[in-house]
Structure formats: structure tokens, C-alpha cells
Design a protein around this nucleic acid. Sequence first.
DNA 1: CTGTTAGCGCCTTCAG
DNA 2: CTGAAGGCGCTAACAG
Lengths: 335, 335
Amino acid sequence: MAEAVNIKRLAQELNISIATVSKALNDSYEISLKTKNRVWDLAKQLNYTPNPAASNLRSHKTKTIAVVIPCVANNFFSLAIKGIEEIARQYGYHVLIYQTHENIEAEVTFTNSLLSGRVDGILTSVSSSEYNSEYYANLVKKIPLVFFDRVYENLDAVRVTTDDYDIAYEATKHLIECGCTKIAHLYGLDNLPAGKARFAGYVDALKAHELDVNEQFVVKYHDDETKNLENIKALLAQQKPDALFSSIEEFIIPAYTACRALGLRIPFDVKMLSFSNLSTAPLLAPSLTTITQPAFEIGREAAKCLFKILNNKQLDDEQNIVLKSMLIKRESTGC
Amino acid sequence: MAEAVNIKRLAQELNISIATVSKALNDSYEISLKTKNRVWDLAKQLNYTPNPAASNLRSHKTKTIAVVIPCVANNFFSLAIKGIEEIARQYGYHVLIYQTHENIEAEVTFTNSLLSGRVDGILTSVSSSEYNSEYYANLVKKIPLVFFDRVYENLDAVRVTTDDYDIAYEATKHLIECGCTKIAHLYGLDNLPAGKARFAGYVDALKAHELDVNEQFVVKYHDDETKNLENIKALLAQQKPDALFSSIEEFIIPAYTACRALGLRIPFDVKMLSFSNLSTAPLLAPSLTTITQPAFEIGREAAKCLFKILNNKQLDDEQNIVLKSMLIKRESTGC
DNA sequence: CTGTTAGCGCCTTCAG
DNA sequence: CTGAAGGCGCTAACAG
């Protein structure tokens, strides 16, 4: 479709050799300024752009990274991608996106397909459906990889995460200080460190305030949306909690739907607090107290780490970068 | 990093020629089943994956498409990407993401860089900062390209859009039926067909109901967030509209902030209606009436069209696919 | 059915 | 300072 303008064509038009053109384009010290200028001018004039496949093949550098995540249509991940893309641009890299939809098979298929030299490195937030670190233990030996948010621990790879335990503790404490005594936990990511830490923060805050920690108050996330709705309804009907603390955004819809179905008014009958990266939440959703992760920053940090690795730069001491989340309170609605 | 397992290695181990291996891997009819099986088995055993750079170089197919959009951190675009990715997977394609941040220079730089054979085709939703169809008129001659949502018209390229005029008309009518008589329009995408159509639908609905169409009731979107806030505040203070109809999601924050600053209660003092693809809006934001575009479907349709083109299939008659948006009313809050 | 040969576009010795 | 030659891994024409 595009009229072939390559290094050979440039060489012909200028009556010099292909090698000279190549070197001139790469600003080699071996070439005279005069020749370089002739080459650069013609290249610009003919709108020459090097063929990436050819350079990849030769140099084994793709100038491309892959982002493997559960789903882009999620406030956290789309913001993270935004951050990743910003850094990638600075380095002149291209960004490939792969969505696993929490399917571990898809995850393995994608990452394997990336091992053939399609990308120079991978940024990933792993699927929550399983925790199989064996696969990743091998993977990190084969390709530069940085985990963000949903990570595998105890591997030789950089992780960028947030203060999940601390913020969950703080959030639970906040609910207690608002007068809640029967706080339920909507438990997501229970296979992953993030989910476990959030749950632990919740549990420890209850204990510290001498409130009962009761299994009946915990609903684990289920793939099946109707199940989630049912489980929350059952929780509300049987345990009558005065607050729901959700560790993932995906619980918001079933939680609200269940409350509405049972005629419970949020936040008056039941307070609602959830991890959520919805930027408009503070204005649009006055009934929802939120924990916001610095998703954009996480993306940026993760990308920066990857590029440091790709450029063989020393990583600053730590392999584990932890950023701070924010608890956004709603004084106006008593929470 | 990965130990070189290529076609040559397979050939050596099996004592057959490189060409035979290549053909076997591509399931050519020329090769006996027996040989194929030997090749496939060894390939699997050695975990062979073809080097994409090499095949691209040879075949001039990259199995990759690019998505060029203003920003991923946007409910519409992240859903569209989800749809695009789903279709791309079905065809075994990889997806590159480029964000323009509404910067026309970035847009041109990116798309130009894609012309060097990095991708087989492009899906794009163009920047709203300018309408310069000359560039795209040339571009569509050089590479398969499908526009979605934010399109250039009168070009030889497929467009996937929504019924902007109709839904804006319907939404405005709805506000009027709710008793509003002083409806302001927050005008976004004014350089693009989508924005113009939304505005036209608004204007025509007012006219049809014999309401004044007044320039003073229109606020155009501005890059500068503080300007938007000021302009909406001025609008509210001076014109005292009883409804704000926003043609883009980006106006929601300044609109709510302005109302709050002036002590106006939404939806009691001022009704609020906006184009928005926030899936949780119906539950979380009871004060906001929304127009939801089928973002996921748009992504899917656009991708399908592109793959039809890439496979030289006949496109069904039309070059312009129009999907329906949905007006989500809020009876409970009187709108 | 299998093998030989000749590149795709670029980069990189090495020789002039 | 410039050019000739070889090869990255794979595919496709053409012989056998």
C-alpha cells in the first residue's frame, strides 16, 4: 500500500551505498556531516521511516512492551494504562494490551506468546482466579517483568503495590468511629496478596476495637453476578450489618442492588465503603465512601521500573514499591 | 534470554530441511502427515514459537492493529477497547494502544509512525481539538482505517457512530416534559460531527417545543478545567437555567462543582443530564440522568469492519454503521 | 512429498 | 570516510 521507501531507495537516489545510508541515519561517527545531511534531507523529503520488523529482527529490540491485565474497562486499570502509556512514550516505546478477563489460561497463553521476542518486557496485574506462582517463577527468568497491584510475591521481580493493609485498617476504623458495630466485608481477590491484606486490615481493626470477627459477616466474591447479589441479600437479611466494606469495585453494583431490593437506605440504614477508582465518585455518589488507589501513579512507577531494567540501570535498593491510597470520607452523610 | 529455538534448530534435530519445517508448521498440504506430526511434536516439546519480526518482514503481515484514541481513562474508550480486544483475539491479532490526549500533533505523529508497517490497520476516534480532514484523506489511502464515534466524514473509510442527533433530541424532549423550560447545553466536541449532531438535536427539540434557542445558554468545552468551572458558574448565576444537558462526560465534574458552589441542589433546583458511559451511574448517581452509548458494541463493530477489510471481504453495503444510544431516565427524582 | 535458493529491510563487521 | 558482504528467522518460488 505504501510506496516502498527504504534504505535501499535512499542509497540509489543518492548514489551511495546502503551501508553508508544506514550509518548516516544512525548518526554514526564514521560518516561525514555532508553525507549525513544529504541522507537526512532526502529521508525527510521521501518521508522515510525504518521498517520496525527488519530492525527488530536484526537488533532483537522491539521498542514494545506488553501490558497484561484482567480488563481495561475498569477505573483502576484504565488509569494505570494511562500512566504506563505516558512513560512508554517518553522512552519511545509502543504498548500492547492484553486482557485476561480473570482467566488464568488466557493469561498463560498471552504471556507465553510474548516470549517469542514480540516485546522487550511485560507489565502485569495478575488474574485473581488462581495463585500459581510456579508459572511466574519461570517466566521472570525469561523476560523482564514488573508486577503492579495484583502481584506474585517471593519472586525475583519488581512489584508496585499499595498500602492495602493500612488503608483497610484505617477505613474499618473510620466506620467504627462513625458508630458502626456490625461491619461486613465483601471479600475480593482472596487468592492474592492485595485481597488478603485488605481483609487482614479489616479483621485487625475490628479486633483492636474489641468487635467480634465473625465469618458470617464475610461474603467472598463470585464470578457469577447473580450469586453475589444473592449472597449479599442473605447477608443483609440474616446478619443485619450496619456497614458494608467492599474490597473491590465489582461488588458495588450487587451491593447497591441488594440494599435497594431490601429497602435499605444507604448510608442511613447501611453505610457503604468501597475500594474504587471512580474519579467522579466524590461528586456523583454521595452515599459511597471510597478508598482510592493512586492508579495513574502505579502505572507510571511500574513502567519506570521496567524501563530501568530494560536499560540495565540500577534499581533503587527496593524491589517492592508501595504507594499510598486515599480514604475519601463523606462528612455530609455521616461517613 | 530465551535459548534460540528456531525453525533451523527444528530442522537439524529432525534431519529435514528448513523449508519443510516451515511448511509443516503452516500446515501446508504439501507435507505428509507423518512429517507434520514429527515437526509439531518437536516444536511443542522444545516450546518453539515463531519469531514475529521475521515473519512480518517476510510476509508483510504484522497480525497487529493499532487503536488511536484520546485517552483510555474514559468510560467510553475503555469499553470500546474491551470490545476491540475481544474481536482482535478471535482473529489472533495483537492490539497496540496510542493516546493522543486530544493533541492533534501527537495524533499525526502516532499515525505516521504506524505507516512503516508496524500494523496492518488502524482503529481511531479522533482528537476534538481540530478538524483537519486533509491529513486523514491522505491517510486512508495508505492504510486500512476505521473511524469510530469521533469520525471524519466524506472520506473513503468506514465509520461506526451512534445516533447522536436523535438521542440528543430525545433527551432534550425528556427534560422539557419534566417541566424544564430553560435548558442549557454544555457543548463538547464542537469540531466534530458527534458534537454538532448532539447540539443540533438539542436545538431542534427546543424549536419543536417553541422554546427559545439562546446563545447565552450554551457553554463550550474548554481545555482549561478552571475555565469550564467559571463558565458554568457564570451561566448558572446569570441565566438561571433549570437544566444542564451535557454532551460529554468531562463536563460532569465542573457542572456538579459549580452547582454545589452556588448552593443549587441537583436535580431539584437544576436537573442534570449528560452523555456518560459510567456503568454504575444508575445506582450511584441518582441525581444524574444519562445517555449511554453502546461503547462495547461500537468497539466490536469497528474491529469487525477492520478485519473484514483486512481479509478483503465485502463490507455490507454501508460504509457508515450507526448504533443506538440509550437514555436512562430517573423517575424517582423527577427526571 | 521434500529440498534448494533467494530474498524481506536493516545492521554490522571488515576491507578498502 | 565509504562500500561490499553476510545474516537476523522466516517464507515462497521453483526444482526435483
